[in-house]
Simulated scan of single mutants.
Amino acid sequence: MALGPVLVIGLDPVRIPGWDPEPVVAAIARGQARFGEHGIEADLCLVVPDDHPEREIVAALTRRDYACVVVGGGIRKHEPLLELFERVVNLVRQHAPGAAIAFNSTPDDTAAAALRWLR
């Protein structure tokens, strides 16, 4: 039985200035590979908070009928991004009302977060 598809919404480590994105890029790649190991199609929507990401998020949410949307820890855990986190959750509710909402701890456990709701 095929599971998914899943949409992962997170911060784009390459487009956020001031720090080395490579460890996060590698972790995202490992997380995406884990989806593949479970036979789950997973799309990424990586955004920059200061670029008014709502348009990108809505476009991603409406591209497919997602079974689950995972909101990344970079958006959820960083207190200055609390308002963005709220907007993301409400955009998911509005544009993908049938999708479960999951939260990861790190990019490495994103598939595990989705699997909690896909089974």
Rank of each mutant, 00 (worst) to 15 (best):
P21Q: 08
P21V: 04
E22A: 13
V24N: 11
V24R: 10
V24L: 13
A27P: 06
A27H: 13
I28W: 10
A29N: 15
R30G: 10
R30S: 14
R30D: 10
G31S: 11
G31I: 11
Q32D: 14
Q32R: 14
R34E: 14
F35D: 08
G36Y: 00
G36D: 05
E37W: 14
H38S: 09
G39R: 06
I40P: 03
E41C: 10
E41V: 11
A42H: 07
A42T: 05
D43K: 04
D43S: 12
L44M: 10
L44D: 09
L44I: 11
C45D: 04
L46R: 04
V47A: 00
V47S: 01
V47H: 06
V47G: 02
V47P: 02
P49M: 02
D50F: 12
D50E: 11
D51A: 14
H52L: 14
P53F: 00
P53K: 00
E54M: 08
I57V: 07
I57T: 04
V58N: 00
A59R: 15
A59P: 11
A60D: 04
A60N: 04
A60V: 02
A60I: 03
L61K: 05
T62I: 08
R63C: 10
R64L: 03
D65I: 08
D65H: 05
D65Y: 06
D65Q: 13
C68F: 04
V69C: 05
V70I: 14
V71D: 08
G72N: 05
G73N: 08
G73R: 11
G74D: 12
I75P: 01
I75M: 03
R76Q: 14
R76P: 12
K77D: 15
K77C: 12
H78D: 15
E79I: 15
E79N: 14
E79M: 15
E79R: 13
E79L: 15
P80N: 08
L81K: 03
L82C: 14
L82S: 13
L84S: 08
F85L: 07
E86P: 11
V88Q: 06
V88S: 02
V89F: 09
V89H: 08
N90K: 09
L91V: 02
L91H: 01
V92Y: 03
V92M: 01
V92W: 00
Q94D: 15
A96Q: 02
A96S: 07
A96L: 01
G98N: 07
A99V: 03
A99M: 03
A100F: 01
A100M: 05
I101D: 08
I101M: 09
A102G: 02
A102T: 06
F103I: 11
F103W: 13
T106M: 06
T106H: 06
P107C: 07
P107F: 01
P107L: 01
D108G: 12
D108C: 09
A111Y: 07
A112C: 03
A112G: 07
A112R: 07
A113H: 04
A113Y: 05
A114C: 01
